[in-house]
Design a binder for these strands. Structure first.
Lengths: 204, 204
DNA sequence: GCTGTACTTGAGTGATTGTTCAATATAGAG
DNA sequence: CTCTATATTGAACAATCACTCAAGTACAGC
């Protein structure tokens, strides 16, 4: 009935994500995107509407994949606190993998964007709020199985953890050794594990 | 002997700093700067060389003023640990003051800039390294007066604190209540104070 | 009041920005 | 094959980008 598409949407989105994650919104030009996606402007606009739209879809993909990896880590540990600590230790390896950036793309966007890109800024803020909810949910679970002192506030702990992750990843964006990042992540993980109520057996 | 300058250099720099801190490097155009400094392009280039140069000088000013405020807080407390905790609590008020941004300008730059702005990126990284040194120095001092367990590593503690500050300020860039930021800063301050060796009297 | 010097101006530079759209190409249906 | 529907192209667009420089301006010293 019509001409078939030669570009896979998810594939194009992944390439755009890599570019945006590395260079940020403003420093990524449409020329860059044309090259990375191997598409001409018309095709890009027909598929994604605008640079801003493509950027927002990239952030959504980033958050979806990041959350999936987070959940995968959690599932490997029956204990919520142990899962969160393992997630932190995993971030210690940020300098070992080859990534577009060590920093979180959502945080980069939150700091880079302003009023002029309000919609994209909102999206970044909302996606981060979703991640915060997941953190809080895990502290809640830890409390329900008696792993965490009932006097502690899961909401505050969740926000604290998000701030720690933001800080760890921003710090890793500096030109520091992999060992330094590993040590920092380890210290954060230890602090988190110190929350474990005395007498609770580690069931890893 | 010649025509007098009508613009104060420090004053112009302060205005540029406010703009860059709020909007970031890429989103700040020369038009914006012309308006904020009330200077025409020729004057700006005669005085600061380039947009990149002006940006780097702005970062230097930012770091100098920020460090001065940090030292002022420290001087109000005879105990190093108490001083650092007070600094964290002060950051809890980020949402109360009217600032160009809640996030640290150096972190914003570290995350926004890339290879194309290598010199400015380096400057941001170096200035952050300088701040890290100050943190480490305070933990060192705490250790020397016996306020801090001698088995703890001041370098790791200093880096951890910098990551916490980065995280706190990035978190505060989200659309959260002032109370939420205060609570987060309080939790971080409490963790820091918990490092105080048992038996050491608080001399605040 | 004149002169020399340094500061300031602003129109203009070429390059690059995100975006549009008429033309073209290509697949499947008949 | 022809026809139709849709994917794709890429030249062209106006706007904006960082930046330059010749001309104009105003002050200090004489």
């Amino acid at each position: 009935m019509a001409r078939a598409t030669i570009h896979n949407r998810q594939d194009s989105l992944e390439r755009a994500l890599q570019l945006f994650w590395q260079k940020g919104f403003h420093a990524t030009s449409l020329k860059d995107l044309e090259k990375a996606l191997d598409m001409r402007p018309g095709s890009i606009y027909a598929t994604f509407g605008s640079k801003d739209g493509l950027f927002q879809e990239s952030m959504e993909r980033y958050a979806r994949l990041g959350l999936a990896e987070f959940e995968r880590t959690l599932h490997a540990y029956p204990s919520p606190l142990a899962g969160l600590a393992a997630y932190l230790r995993g971030l210690g390896g940020l300098r070992d993998r080859e990534l577009p950036s060590r920093a979180c793309m959502l945080v980069k966007s939150l700091l880079e964007l302003g009023e002029r890109e309000q919609a994209a800024w909102r999206k970044a803020a909302d996606l981060l709020a979703g991640m915060e909810e997941r953190f809080i949910d895990r502290f809640d679970a830890a409390q329900q199985i008696g792993e965490l002192d009932s006097r502690l506030d899961p909401v505050r702990l969740g926000r604290r953890l998000q701030a720690e992750v933001m800080g760890l990843r921003a710090f890793a964006q500096r030109d520091v050794d992999s060992a330094t990042v590993h040590a920092l992540a380890e210290d954060m993980a230890l602090s988190l594990e110190a929350l474990r109520k005395d007498g609770v057996t580690d069931k890893r």
